[in-house]
């Protein structure tokens, strides 16, 4: 039974060594020394050929249990040492998580474009088509079709850049109204449109004036459109852009292409009742002009003013942005100082 003793010794020694193995390399060395081709256990097993046929199965079976026990012990120890090694590695890999992340390039949409897209999506949601029009307009569409004949004093309200006496840079987005009205087939349903775009006026650039700015024109024409609908629509707009608690109020005004014409104030701050009705300090601030489309405008476009009617409004994205973000100088929009532009990075659509 010498072989069996030897196996028992190998097992005892090996188990001690395995338990003592300090790292994976040491453990591997033990595995090779014991279970490898030239290992001690393998050596003992080679001596089996000298055993009697009766002894062989017994010793063989015993040898197998020893090998299984050792293999299992090695595996266990391996797992333990691996875990230890991983721990050590992870500990070494610790980084300063407060170092800044690598920058990702992301541009900022121009704040005016943000305002325009915002208003656009609101109205598209209500079924308004977005219509573009030319920036170089004819006097015909910019004025005549909008009930502003030649030499009408209302032409003084907006000083216009001319290219020739008949061709000009549009001073408003309203000509798109006239163009769309002329083309619209009312048998296909009502006309609901908005038209954002650039407009030009002969103003000297300063903090509140710019020879180039933006407008968004809105127009709804159908058989039963009321001034109450205009009020309700503008309320939706004011609350969407400036906040859900806003109120609006209409004041009489004059635009040649609407009658009645109104200017629209939005509630602002908490104070009311100052004498300056257009100052932010008194609780109201003027945001846009609107009205019921003048019958002459409908007639000029070949629409039956006895059957169809509706409202129009025109708002200034520049003014909206200035109010909403407290921007004091309109020139900021067109000088494109990158520090100004990038501050408007915000969640959007």
């Amino acid at each position: 039974m010498a072989l069996q003793d030897e196996l028992t010794k190998i097992k005892t020694d090996a188990l001690t060594q395995i338990a003592a193995a300090a790292d994976l390399n040491a453990l591997n060395d033990i595995r090779v020394q014991v279970l490898g081709k030239k290992g001690s256990l393998t050596g003992v097993l080679r001596g089996m050929k000298d055993l009697t046929p009766e002894e062989r199965p017994k010793v063989g079976s015993f040898a197998n249990t020893v090998r299984d026990a050792l293999t299992e012990a090695i595996e266990k120890r391996h797992a333990a040492l691996s875990a230890q090694a991983l721990q050590a590695k992870l500990a070494q890999e610790t980084i300063d998580v407060t170092l800044p992340g690598r920058p990702v390039h992301r541009g900022t949409m121009h704040v005016l474009d943000q305002v325009m897209e915002d208003v656009e999506s609101l109205f598209m949601g209500m079924g308004y088509q977005v219509v573009d029009g030319p920036e170089v307009e004819t006097e015909h569409y910019n004025f005549e079709m909008l009930n502003v004949p030649k030499d009408h004093p209302a032409r003084d309200m907006q000083d216009t850049f001319y290219i020739t006496p008949d061709v000009l840079l549009r001073s408003q987005t309203s000509p798109v109204q006239a163009r769309t009205l002329e083309k619209h087939d009312f048998s296909q349903g009502p006309l609901k449109m908005i038209s954002p775009g650039r407009v030009y006026r002969r103003d000297t650039d300063d903090a509140t004036h710019s020879h180039q700015f933006h407008q968004i024109e809105g127009l709804v024409i159908d058989k039963h459109i009321t001034m109450g609908d205009l009020k309700g629509t503008l309320e939706v707009l004011a609350r969407h852009v400036f906040g859900p608690d806003r109120k609006i109020r209409l004041r009489p005004s004059y635009f040649p292409f609407t009658e009645p014409s109104v200017e629209v104030d939005v509630s602002w701050g908490s104070k009311t009742g100052s004498d300056d009705v257009t100052s932010k300090d008194n609780g109201w601030v003027e945001v846009l002009g609107a009205g019921m489309v003048h019958p002459n405008v409908l007639k000029s476009a070949g629409v039956d003013a006895d059957v169809y009617g509706g409202f129009a409004f025109g708002l200034g994205p520049d003014r909206f942005a200035m109010l909403k973000y407290d921007i004091e100088d309109i020139r900021n929009f067109y000088l494109n100082d990158q520090r100004f532009l990038t501050q408007f990075q915000q969640e959007g659509e």
Partner: peptide, 15 residues
């Protein structure tokens, strides 16, 4: 004045 929204036929808006 009342405050209402147009009760027109539904229109489809698209870019």
């Amino acid at each position: 004045l009342p405050s209402t929204l147009p009760q027109a036929t539904t229109t489809v808006a698209h870019h």
